[in-house]
Design a protein around this nucleic acid. Structure first.
Length: 499
RNA sequence: GCCCCCGUCGUCUAGUGGUCAGGACAGCAGGUUUUCAUCCUGCAGGCAGGGGUUCAAUUCCCCUCGGGGGUACCA
C-alpha cells in the first residue's frame, strides 16, 4: 500500500460538555475502521468555538476514550508528525490558507456586522424570499480598500466566494451519491470576526494537512459537505472519501444531546460498573450489524468484523435496557481474575475492603465475584449483593425474617441440626454440603424446603441469591456454622423482628 | 420556508422482485431451580400511507406523511 492510499482517519470532537453515547458511537466506528484496516487513528480537538469549549470537556473526552479502549495513534498527549492536534494551536496554518484564497480572489473580506446580516435575512423573509441568504454586499468591494480597513484594525470576517451553477456531488460510503447545488449556498463565512476559522474551513485545511483518507463523521455534517467540497476545489486539494454515519437518538427520537435530561455521560456507565467491552459492544450494534445473527462481540471481535459498508443509513434509538442486557452478558463470560481488579473500587466504595485490599480480602472478593458475576448486570450491583461474603454484620431482609425465620417453630432446631451436620463433614464441597444438609433435615424430621430458606436467611440475610449450597460453600464452614447457631439463638431469644 | 438524509415488530436489526419477513432486547406464558437471576420452551408484535412499474412488490420509481439534519461570525 502506497503512502497516499494508506488509511488515515480522525475523530474530531469539539470539547463542550461531557461525552455522551452518540459521540462515542461515531468515534467507535472511526476507530474500528482504522483498526480493521490497519490504518492510523488520529484524534483532533476542534476547539475553535472559544465561547463554548472547556478544558474539563477535553479531559472528560480523553478519559472516556481511554476507558472504552479506543487508543489514538496521533493526537493530544501522544503527539505525532502532523500536529499540533488542537485547532486553537493551528491558527497560522489557517491564516496562510486563507491568505491564499484571498489573493486568488476566491474569498473576500466582509465588514457587515452580525446584526447587519441578520437584518438582511429578516428583510428577505419579510419579502417572502424562500431561502434568505447573505446578499454578497462586500463581494465586489475594492480589494485595496478592504485591505486598508483590515490593517486599520476594523473587525471583519472572511467569506468564500461561492460561484452559482455548480453541481456538488458527495460520494458517500453509506449513502451513495448525494447531490447539492451551489445555488442553494451563499457566500459563507470561513474566518470569524475573532480571527478563528469556522468549522467547515478548519476541517478542510486540517484533513488535508493531516492526510486524512476517509472523513467519517455524524450525518449532521452531510449538509455541510458541499461547502467543504467547494473549499477543497478552491484550494486544489484532493477530496477524501466521505462517510456520514447515522446519529443516535433518544427515546423521544430526538438527537442525543448534552442538554438532554435522559442522556448520561460515558463515564457514568463506568461509574455504574458496566464493563467497557459491553458498552463498546452495545454501541457497535447501534447502526451496524455483522450481517449474521451474532450480537456478542469483544473488542477484538469487533475490530475483526467491522466494515463501513455494513453501517446502516438510518438513525437508531439508544436503549438502556439492551445496554444492561449486553452488560450482564459480558459480566457473565468475563474471567474472574480480570473482573476482580475492576471490582475493587466498587467494594472499597462500599467499605467492604481496604484500598488497596488485604490479601484475605482479595481472596474473599475473588470468591464473591466468581459466585455473583452470572447474576449481576454491573459491578456496582455485584458489590452491593456481596456484603454477606465480606462481612459478618450484614443486614437481614425484614420480610425474609418473618417469612423464613419466624414462621415455623421448628426453625431454630433445624438450623442447629444443620450446623452440627455441616461441622462434621469431612469434605467441604458442594456435594458433601448438600448431602449433609439433606441428611440432617430429612433425618431430623424437618421440612427441607423451609430449612433451606431459613439457612439462606441466616447465612446471607437475603431471600434471593445463588443456590444455597453454593452460598454455604463460598461463605465457608466456620462462618456458616457460626451464623446458623447464632441465628437459632436469636430466634429463641426473641431478638429478631420481621415486618 | 428552502436544501439534504432517513422510514422492517415497542427498541436494535437481518433480508429478498416470488421468504412461513429471520434474530436480539424488552413484554407475556410455561418449564428447570430451595429463592431471585441465569437457562430452556412457547406466545404476542413489523415492512408508515397512496399511487405506479411488473405475472409478482417489503424490495424499484413517484407523491404524501412522519422523523432527523443543514440553512450560524456552533461544531
Amino acid at each position: 500500500m502506497s503512502a497516499s492510499s494508506a488509511v488515515r482517519v480522525r475523530f474530531a470532537p469539539s470539547p463542550t460538555g461531557y461525552w455522551h453515547p452518540g459521540n462515542a458511537r461515531t468515534a467507535l466506528f472511526t476507530w474500528l475502521f482504522a483498526r480493521h484496516t490497519g490504518g492510523t487513528f488520529v484524534l483532533r480537538i476542534e476547539d475553535t468555538d472559544r465561547a463554548r469549549n472547556t478544558p474539563e470537556a477535553t479531559e472528560n473526552l480523553l478519559d472516556s476514550m481511554r476507558w472504552l479502549g479506543m487508543d489514538w495513534d496521533e493526537g493530544p498527549v501522544v503527539g505525532g508528525e502532523y500536529g499540533p492536534y488542537l485547532q486553537s494551536e493551528r491558527l497560522p496554518i489557517y491564516r496562510e490558507a486563507t491568505e491564499r484564497l484571498l489573493e486568488e480572489g476566491k474569498a473576500y473580506y466582509c465588514f457587515a456586522t452580525p446584526e447587519e446580516v441578520e437584518a438582511m435575512r429578516e428583510e428577505q423573509r419579510a419579502r417572502g424570499v424562500a431561502a434568505p441568504k447573505y446578499d454578497g454586499r462586500y463581494r465586489d468591494y475594492p480589494v485595496a480598500e478592504a485591505r486598508r480597513r483590515v490593517e486599520a484594525g476594523e473587525r471583519h470576517v472572511v467569506r468564500f466566494r461561492t460561484e452559482p451553477g455548480q453541481d456538488l456531488i458527495v460520494h458517500d460510503i453509506v449513502r451513495g451519491d448525494v447531490a447539492f447545488r451551489s445555488d442553494d449556498l451563499d457566500d459563507f463565512v470561513i474566518v470569524k470576526g475573532d480571527g478563528f476559522p469556522v468549522y467547515n474551513w478548519a476541517c478542510v485545511v486540517d484533513d488535508t494537512a493531516m492526510r486524512i483518507s476517509h472523513v467519517i463523521r455524524a450525518e449532521e455534517h452531510l449538509s455541510n459537505t458541499p461547502r467543504q467540497i467547494l473549499l477543497y476545489q478552491a484550494m486544489g486539494y484532493d477530496l477524501p472519501r466521505f462517510c456520514h454515519v447515522p446519529v443516535v437518538l433518544n427515546t423521544q427520537r430526538k438527537k442525543l444531546s448534552k442538554r438532554d435530561p435522559g442522556v448520561r455521560s460515558i463515564l457514568s456507565y463506568r461509574d455504574d460498573g458496566i464493563l467497557p467491552s459491553a458498552v463498546m459492544n452495545y454501541l457497535a450494534l447501534l447502526g451496524w450489524s455483522s450481517g449474521t445473527e451474532r450480537e456478542f462481540f469483544t473488542r477484538d471481535d469487533l475490530v475483526e468484523a467491522f466494515t463501513l459498508e455494513r453501517v446502516s443509513p438510518s438513525p437508531s434509538v439508544f436503549d438502556v435496557r439492551k445496554l444492561e442486557s449486553v452488560g450482564a452478558e459480558h459480566l457473565r463470560v468475563a474471567a474472574t481474575d480480570e473482573l476482580l481488579e475492576m471490582s475493587i473500587p466498587f467494594f472499597a466504595a462500599l467499605g467492604l475492603c481496604a484500598d488497596p485490599p488485604t490479601s484475605d480480602q482479595r481472596t474473599a472478593m475473588w470468591s464473591a465475584v466468581d459466585l455473583l458475576k452470572t447474576r449481576a448486570w454491573n459491578l456496582q450491583n455485584l458489590a452491593e449483593s456481596s456484603v454477606y461474603l465480606l462481612r459478618d454484620d450484614f443486614p437481614l431482609d425484614p420480610q425474609g425474617v418473618s417469612k423464613r425465620l419466624l414462621k415455623h417453630e421448628e426453625t431454630p432446631t433445624a438450623l442447629e441440626a444443620v450446623a452440627t451436620a455441616l461441622e462434621a463433614t469431612t469434605e467441604w464441597n458442594l456435594e458433601a454440603i448438600e448431602e449433609a444438609f439433606r441428611t440432617a433435615t430429612e433425618g431430623g424430621g424437618f421440612h427441607t424446603g423451609n430449612a433451606i430458606h431459613a439457612a439462606r436467611m441466616a447465612v446471607t440475610g437475603s431471600q434471593k441469591g445463588p443456590g444455597l449450597f453454593e452460598c454455604l460453600y463460598t461463605v465457608g464452614r466456620e462462618r456458616v456454622v457460626e451464623r446458623l447457631r447464632r441465628t437459632a439463638q436469636r430466634i429463641r431469644a426473641g431478638e429478631l423482628t420481621g415486618e
